[in-house]
Write a protein that binds this DNA or RNA. Structure first.
Lengths: 224, 224
DNA sequence: TCAATAACCGTATGGTCGTACGGTTTTCCT
DNA sequence: AGGAAAACCGTACGACCATACGGTTATTGA
């Protein structure tokens, strides 16, 4: 019966305002009043959609990560449909999350600010931990796919390799972000490419064979 | 003529109080009043030694890093005097900076909180960047020493290897810190050890010879 | 049409913070 | 001894903040 509004859209509107404020002045610059002004609404309305400021920040953090993931999923799907080698999909995917242009650099500013506050905010810490684990899981899947495909040696521990790869990417990004002069993007990407080459040592049987041809039976799939 | 006090000691006393406050409640918990209380002095005295709160925080950040570096230098010197392989010195050195026990975990809480605020505090960002570059420089030196010693192949780019190693350690630490359950210390250390094994591929000629024996003349030292 | 109800606004409030400032104490040099 | 100067204290102040709250507006279903 009453007036209705798109809750999700409003919450995103507020979260976007928070994101912009952080990008300019860090988490310190985020106040409820400023957020309302930046979002073009009143303080009261912000309160209507977020019970507390911490709720607002948590939602914003999740939103930022979800946006990155959505972009990532998009890129991966496009690459996979194009039949790109898994190794290259992984490299491009990781590169997509790195601060290689002003937009993504801003994204990292925001993420870093939240990571810093996660130290004393358990809910932020949990969100961060979950995202990192999710990322490791995705990478492990990709490496497993690489096994089926023949790019990755079957004996390799996909989970361990994924953990290492995720950590390597994270660390390279931190160094690159803090000091792009001494750790240029080219160096970080080269390091990642070299590391990936130690995981994806083979070439993909599935993509390289002629159309209609059956894969060689050494993959262990007991057909029939 | 006037009353004198140990400035350095007082400033460290304040910085220690700040460190404790951050360890418990993050940077949010740090106020000038609380810091004074934690340090057992008055607000006025804190102001006497630090013009602004930001100055106080910057000093504290530097202090935290300096403490770690001092501990590190100590460990390295002991290991080197014991004639340990450079590869192991490097591994132990990196492990020393990792949050492997509550004390070092607290250290990382503090460091992470500062890293987060470095996003909007240029002075903190500069301090962080300088420290990371310093770390990369030390690692490059160690790898160069490994070359002279025979542990590292002479053709290897020490600087590039140092950048990668530093980033790898940083990333492993972040993942381990955020989610020790899924990235246990053992996994992080194993990853580091494996990575070091790809750099330090040889054994040290200098340490393996009999006492008093002269090193082989291929080191380039033109003794007379 | 009309009440019911959510969307939305603006301000009031209680508290906290960083910093300024005037006063007090202690020590050292002459 | 005595005064100069720094070490040190406690409070006051202006600003800002998160949240509470009462009032207003718009829309919907009956």
């Amino acid at each position: 019966m009453p007036r209705v509004a798109d809750h999700d859209q409003r919450r995103r509107q507020v979260a976007d305002a928070v994101r912009r404020l952080i990008a300019v002045g860090g988490l310190e610059a985020v106040t409820v009043a400023r957020t309302a002004a930046e979002a073009g609404i009143s303080v009261g309305l912000v309160q209507h959609y977020f019970r507390t400021k911490d709720d607002m920040l948590l939602f914003t953090y999740r939103q930022v990560m979800a946006d990155i993931d959505a972009r990532l999923a998009d890129l991966i799907e496009r690459r996979e449909q194009a039949g790109t080698r898994i190794e290259h999909v992984v490299l491009d995917g990781i590169a997509e999350t790195m601060p290689l242009d002003p937009r993504r650099r801003e994204e990292w500013r925001v993420a870093l600010a939240f990571a810093g506050r996660a130290v004393d905010e358990p809910r932020l810490a949990a969100a961060r931990a979950q995202r990192l684990e999710d990322l490791r899981g995705r990478l492990a899947e990709a490496i497993d796919n690489g096994k089926e495909c023949g790019e990755v040696p079957p004996g390799l521990d996909a989970r361990a390799a994924a953990v290492r790869l995720a950590a390597y990417a994270e660390g390279l990004t931190h160094h690159m972000f803090a000091d792009p002069e001494h750790v240029p993007p080219s160096a970080a990407l080269a390091a990642l490419a070299d590391h990936l080459a130690t995981i994806f040592t083979g070439h993909c049987r599935l993509h390289d064979r002629a159309p209609g041809e059956r894969p060689p039976p050494d993959a262990g799939d007991d057909a029939d």
